[in-house]
Amino acid sequence: MNIFRLFGDLSHLAAIAILLLKIWKTRSCAGVSGKTQLLFAVCFITRYIDLFLHFVSLYNTEKVMKLIYISASVFTCYLIFFKFKATYDGNHDSMRAEFLIVPAAGLACLINTKFDAIEILWTFSIYLEAVAILPQLFLISKTGEAETITSHYLFAQGSYRALYILNWIYRYHYESHVDTIAIVAGVVQTILYCDFFYLYITKVVKGQKIVLPA
């Protein structure tokens, strides 16, 4: 474990917590893409499938973190699609998730480390996570704005994988560890946030709201 990965995971936890708090406190999921949250839930379930296959006692924080990610993302989807369904902005959350899931699944079968079920699921989860935020960014471009709290959520969510890139550089240099698939997908994922990061740093930090087109 290194400082970059630690802060990456903390940033990811913060993002999940910020979104849950926003929906729970405002009792509304306006401005939140339900599809992105569904894709994240699929990512966690397919990536941490080992938790279900051979249940191991919660002897280390990693197992606990995996369970937190899975339960929090499923609970977030429950809030969006059931509890606060009336506030779900289905009209603007219109990016076709199939256009993300099918290519990720196809690519996972073509480019992977080992052609076995668990490894293919892990690879699918990595590719899907790289593009899972697109419906959320698409929704913001359609509505033309993002609530400040949603901007904070996106900043934490984007920072998590950006910090992981620093972690991979660290591990390459000190542990000669390389996980090419995760690195390439992580770089693509972080690049997708660049436009948002620019808006966040130039606007939200100054107390302004993000309004598109910028």
């Binding site: 480390t113 996980d179 090419t180």
Partner: peptide, 10 residues
């Protein structure tokens, strides 16, 4: 550089 056998990250 060796690729990771098991994926040891979240």
């Amino acid at each position: 550089k060796k690729p990771s056998a098991a994926h040891d990250e979240l």
